[in-house]
Design a protein around this nucleic acid. Structure first.
Length: 835
RNA sequence: GCCGGGAUGGCGGAACUGGCAGACGCACGGGACUCAAAAUCCCGCGAGGCGCGAGUCUCAUGUGGGUUCGAUUCCCACUCUCGGCACCA
């Protein structure tokens, strides 16, 4: 074996060199035999749950990006283990979904056959990477033992009224023949195939995540998460403070032809009332028209006779338009309804229009248009010759300054042309006008969110069937929990078709089922659920894998959750992390878990790019980890990935630097092999060692892996300087420091040093802070801010003695031309003389 | 358009609360070892000026301002770049 001593009777051999393949094979086997990575789920005294986002097991195999993320998590997990925690580092596979299904369709293989082989390949690759993964508790979202509980989660939401069905305009991809979530549409095109997305009206299952908007937002303040991620979530939730204002619409039939009639807000004519949402109630005196979304339910009722045809035509055009065109084509269109509404602030009649720049799904589906102070309204008013009023003035402007564009500044501006509210700052006007409208029963303060309810329906095959049955007599009946799982049948032809109905509907035996309530023949729901539902609760499952009676065991969950540390990509900053938080809150409120945030700490890792571009098959710049592990060994590859750049920022992958990391491990190997125990270790080298232990111990928790590695390299350089002989005490703790990064070689070297137990059970080395700090300090001496030299002084020197030492140095003293006007002394760092 | 990152030698990057800019690594140059090469080891390596020389001076962290004894770090205004969102009233 690699490090065994020469057999007796043989001539002396060359010193044994570092053979990564042999070392890694040996320790992989040894870890498996010893169950070294198995967490003691029931008995752990200091549980620590170190989670990474589980991968989608693609047919292409493991991506360097995956390995980068997993290695980063593994280093932290192994570090925690060395700190004495019982660390649980699980791994699983997020294998349902459209990605797998499309790949299966393209290659003609059935997902039920494809996924297990992909998972096997991923597992093989992951095992080579030396991750401290507990392979006895893995999760495969496509396995019945898992999706049984995904269906259970759905039923809990249904029970609590948080799952509901509604007909909704959804994004429809004509190529993939499926409904897409808003997030799967990029600029009007299907995220996967690039086809133009259309709009269709379908009955869909939704989760009422909007009920939790306020809580999802407020809780963010309590979480230890990457700031970028929190900011992204805040933006996605999109809270807006504003007001809902009621506009009375005059019946156009009655009032037609009497446009000259003077109307005030007090007139109680019949007709409808339109509610609008605005974030700028302070500008209501400038509201010169209303706009309703083309889908607005009141549109028919208010449209005047002559305008009916035009409005109907406009509605028809909008309805046919795909979601993309509507959202990307910013050219304003719209038609007048023939109706007028009363502006409750001015009492004036203002025309009511319909236009597709107003969206039915946000706010009330209607707006008051203030063209003077809103860019879209300005553009619209300009195009259709509607009046534009100034009601806000900035510095240097007055109530009559002409508006050549919408004036939208909100700081240092005041109201004008707003009756009793003239000269109010806008924020004050916002409050006062809202209160005034409220007193007239014409409005009230309202908070709106951009967040939409979560559409979980997919008219596809490869997902967990939604556990609901439709009975002619009983209506919609949830599948009883005892009957779970609703098994996804093996359908050879799982292709989606144009009907908008899932392929499951074609499986007669499966589709027809007795009603759980009355026993009469009924039909199954044929939609499957969104993959984000699978990944929305998997962290709860890991510790309880193997339990078939519950989704997660109460005591175990209490012991291990919430997750102590979660690491993943920022591409999931919004959806996955938001949905997981939402589901956790629901399960908390339902009494299943005693925490309402799943991830105490979250860090987003960076992206690995290559030659300045994202890796992709089409660019041909994909790195296959297998090749690098074959060529360099997993330890070198892991360490190299972490050395590329800051973990939270990612880095540019290039072959050039990897040899430096290999050299470092080679040197570590020979230094340990050749270390002696004669005499005392060198004092300066020991000081460097203590500094290194301190630095690495501080850097790892900050995920500053690149600087940890640099620090260890520095120590190695000091240890081996000028080919000096290495004392064992100077190098032994370095094996422990390197262990999280390069676990195999660390185990081997630890054994070579005579230890029988694993290096991961050896604890983290300690350091002497005073010794590491040293007794002397190098002080930079500056004259007028320019460094003119350095002096070495005792660490706790006072200013006078440092000053004297500086003056004693002729190289410094020659710059001192007079007496110092000012002296700045930073102990231990610098002395600056201002002359 | 809006939100959020980022910009430092030939290259990847370091500098933790404002305090010696360029740690560590790559590449490159020189040397040792070798018949030779690889590997290994040692030395050098931001740019420019002056000096035979040990040295020494100036400039330098995307651009332009500002605060400060002192700015890669803080403030203001820009440029470029990467990522996300995009008619959200």
């Amino acid at each position: 074996m690699t490090a065994s001593s020469p057999a007796s009777g043989q001539p002396p051999e060359e010193p044994v060199g570092y053979d990564p393949a042999a070392v890694e094979r040996k320790w992989r086997d040894r870890w498996t035999e010893r169950h070294a990575n198995r967490a003691n789920i029931d008995g752990a005294r200091r549980p620590y749950y170190a989670l990474m986002m589980f991968p989608y097991p693609s047919a292409e195999g493991l991506h360097v990006g995956n390995l980068f993320a997993f290695t980063g998590n593994d280093i932290f997990a192994r570090f925690q283990r060395l700190q004495g925690f019982d660390v649980f580092e699980p791994m699983g596979f997020d294998a349902f979904g459209i990605h797998s299904e499309n790949h299966a369709l393209k290659t003609g293989r059935h997902p039920m056959e494809l996924i297990p082989s992909n998972i096997a390949n991923f597992t093989r690759q992951l095992e080579r990477a030396g991750l401290m993964v507990d392979w006895s508790r893995t999760v495969d979202t496509t396995h019945q033992s898992y999706y049984k509980w995904t269906q259970w989660v759905f039923l809990q939401l249904l029970k609590r009224g948080l799952a509901f069905k509604k007909k909704a305009a959804v994004n429809w991809c004509p190529n993939d023949k499926t409904v897409l979530a808003n997030e799967q549409v990029e600029g009007g095109h299907c995220e996967r195939c690039g086809a133009l997305v259309e709009q269709r009206l379908l009955e869909q299952w939704f989760f009422r995540i909007t009920d939790y908007a306020e809580r999802l937002l407020a809780n963010l303040d309590t979480l230890d998460w990457s700031n970028t991620t929190k900011t992204a979530q805040r933006g996605w939730i999109g809270r807006s403070d504003g007001a809902e204002i009621r506009f009375r619409v005059l019946n156009p039939l009655e009032d037609a032809g009497s446009a000259s009639v003077h109307v005030t807000a007090e007139i109680g004519t019949g007709g409808e009332e339109v509610r609008v949402f605005t974030t700028r109630p302070d500008t209501i005196f400038g509201a010169t028209y209303l706009v309703l979304a083309p889908e607005h339910p009141l549109l028919d009722a208010i449209t005047g006779g002559e305008q009916r045809a035009a409005v109907a035509a406009y509605q028809a055009v909008t309805a046919k338009q795909d979601v993309i065109a509507r959202k990307t084509n910013k050219e304003k269109t719209g038609v007048f309804t023939g109706a007028y509404a009363v502006n409750p602030a001015t009492g004036e009649m203002i025309p009511v229009w319909t236009a597709d720049y107003v969206l039915m799904e946000y706010g009330t589906g209607a707006i008051m248009a203030v063209p003077g102070h809103d860019e879209r309204d300005f553009e619209f008013a300009n195009k259709f010759a509607l009046p534009i009023e100034r009601v806000v003035m900035g510095p240097g402007q007055n109530a009559h300054t002409p508006l050549t564009a919408a004036f939208t500044d909100e700081t240092d501006v005041r109201l004008c042309n707003s009756a009793q509210f003239d000269d109010y700052p806008v924020d004050e006007g916002h409050r006062q006008i809202t209160a005034w409208l409220e007193s007239k029963h014409a409005g009230k303060p309202v908070v709106n969110f951009r967040l939409h309810d979560w559409c979980i329906s997919r008219q596809r095959y490869w997902g967990p069937p939604i556990p609901v049955i439709y009975c002619d007599d009983c209506g919609m009946v949830p599948v009883p929990e005892a009957d779970l799982p609703v098994v996804l049948p093996n359908i050879p032809d799982f292709r989606p078709d144009d009907s908008g109905i899932s392929p499951l509907a074609r499986h007669e035996e499966w589709y027809h089922v007795p009603c759980p309530a009355c026993g009469k023949m009924a039909r199954r729901e044929t939609d499957v659920s969104d993959t984000f539902l699978d990944s929305g609760w998997y962290f709860l499952r890991y510790p309880s894998v193997g339990r078939d009676d519950v989704p997660f065991d109460k005591a175990i969950t209490k012991k291990w959750l919430p997750v102590n540390s979660y690491i993943g990509g920022n591409e999931h900053a919004v959806l996955h992390l938001l949905y997981s938080r939402f589901l956790t809150m629901v399960l908390h409120d339902a009494g299943y878990v005693d925490f309402d945030e799943p991830f105490t700490k979250f860090r987003a890792h960076g992206l690995i790019i290559r030659d300045g571009a994202k890796m992709s098959k089409s660019k041909g710049n994909v790195v296959n980890p297998d090749d690098y592990i074959d060529g360099w060994g997993a330890d070198t590859f892991r360490t190299y990935l972490m050395f590329l750049g800051p973990f939270e920022e990612g880095g540019d992958f290039r072959d050039a630097g990897i040899s430096g990391v290999k050299r470092f491990l080679d040197r570590l190997w020979s230094s340990v092999r050749d270390a002696h125990t004669t005499g005392e270790p060198d004092r300066d080298v020991m000081q460097k060692l203590h500094q290194t232990i301190k630095k690495v111990g501080e850097d790892i928790p900050r995920l500053s892996y690149n600087t940890s590695i640099a620090a260890m390299m520095e120590h190695m350089n000091v240890v081996r300087r000028s080919e000096r002989a290495v004392h064992r005490a100077e190098i032994e703790p370095l094996v422990q420091l390197v262990a999280p990064f390069a676990p195999h070689i660390a185990e081997e070297l630890w054994e070579m040093l005579g230890h029988t137990a694993s290096v991961f059970d050896s604890g983290w080395p300690s350091f002497d802070a005073a010794f590491a700090g040293g007794e002397t300090a190098t002080i930079a001496v500056q004259i007028n801010g320019k460094t003119r030299g350095t002096i070495v002084v005792a660490k706790d020197s006072v200013q006078d003695s440092v000053m004297a030492a500086a003056m004693a140095d002729p190289a410094i003293a020659k710059f001192v031309t007079g007496s110092a006007k000012k002296v700045v002394y930073v102990p231990g760092r610098l002395l600056n003389l201002v002359i």
